[in-house]
Design a protein around this nucleic acid. Structure first.
Lengths: 221, 221
DNA sequence: CCGGATCCGGGTTGATACTG
DNA sequence: CAGTATCAACCCGGATCCGG
């Protein structure tokens, strides 16, 4: 990218990460951890493969990403954020938080990936009953399957399906997000296009509660 | 800008503010308040005038900026951030904070503007002696003149010169920034290319103190 | 299948000139 | 002062191809 040529830390930051796709690559590496080239490409639908290769080279040159040749069993190269690269997390968080109100306009051809729920999970969910045994919720958002775990006060997300989950929620991504953000009540979920099965307590355990986090933006579809 | 077409709040945010120059325009409006077109252009050295006009239109369409026809005495149009636009402050802050270590590489032809000190002043300075009467420091950074005021626990910055300032610091922007960020001690300032005059107490009153803010990045030139 | 490289058309940006 | 007009250069997107 052309430098802005301004002696200002915002401009200097954008000299490094202001290029198209660059911050989304960082988002992907932050939410998935070390990734193969192909994983990155599937997590960044729409990127041209030459651009991904270019950006990864630039990020490597800037010291934000390093490539690691994985050991023999897998024998593939992994891309991971350096510490300096991971320090962009507050930038991604701030952008993601500011963007929440924009999630109201969902276009039919918008792509969706399960790992993109990691930020809303961190932003909106909390384990309100940390003393209970661990519980999990299977989410089917569009064609993406993820599991939300609550355990000892911590809420986390993993990709994939878990047949032993305590509850299951199925529906289109915008409705799932509305539920997670607290703008759609669990009681109304079924009427709003969500299928909810299993333990409602496991779900209420992590959903935002009124007065819990004041000033949180919501996603009202 | 082309949409990324991803149902993710980070991508949606970048759909709106991810274009080249856009976030710098927001930075400028945040640090200067309502501005005339010409003020914006001078605060964004390097921008082409057609791009500034384009971006302002896009920002207006997105509801982040509104134009206001100023009353008869001045009779010019002002551009100001809407509330929604001002909510980008955490994004600018996060970028600016991440960019601080990049300030070490200052190129001779980098432009500099006094208002760009507003972010470092907020980030690094504090009024450590809130009970003393108000004091002020005149800064001459390159050809830019600003005044840092400390009053009743608050530190603020205004553009221009003030002949009644209690102290004066003169030098190139990188040295000024090193001093403000705490990586250059006031005692060493003179040897490092800064001219310091007047009350050193007024300066020490606001400079960061060891142990005051742990983990702050610094600018070591 | 993985991890790209290459090529090309079109859109965006940048620099300058000009105008109500 | 607040832009518009023009045009060249560059960057991006999409497709195709290639070596392990």
């Amino acid at each position: 990218m052309r430098s802005y040529g301004q002696y200002c830390s915002v401009a200097k930051a954008l000299d490094v990460v202001g290029d198209r796709w660059t911050l989304l690559i960082v988002r992907e590496l932050l939410s998935r951890g070390p990734c193969r080239y192909t994983d990155l490409r599937s997590g960044l639908p729409g990127i041209a493969t030459n651009l991904l290769a270019d950006r990864l080279r630039e990020l490597e040159a800037a010291g934000l990403v390093e490539r690691e040749d994985a050991p023999p069993p897998v024998a593939t190269t992994l891309f991971r954020l350096t510490d300096r690269g991971a320090e962009l997390a507050p930038v991604i968080d701030a952008l993601g938080r500011w963007g929440v109100p924009l999630m109201r306009d969902h276009r039919a051809d918008d792509a969706f990936r399960g790992q993109w729920l990691r930020l809303p999970v961190r932003m909106f969910l909390a384990d309100h009953e940390p003393d209970r045994p661990a519980s999990s919720i299977q989410i089917h958002a569009g064609d993406q399957a993820v599991v939300i775990d609550a355990d000892a006060g911590r809420v986390s997300l993993r990709l994939g399906a878990d047949p032993d989950a305590d509850a299951t929620v199925t529906g289109p991504p915008p409705r799932i997000l509305a539920l997670l953000s607290g703008s759609l009540d669990l009681a109304d979920a079924e009427e709003q296009g969500l299928r909810v099965a299993g333990s409602h307590e496991a779900i209420r355990r992590v959903l935002p509660r009124a007065g819990t986090a004041a000033g949180e933006p919501e996603v009202t579809p």
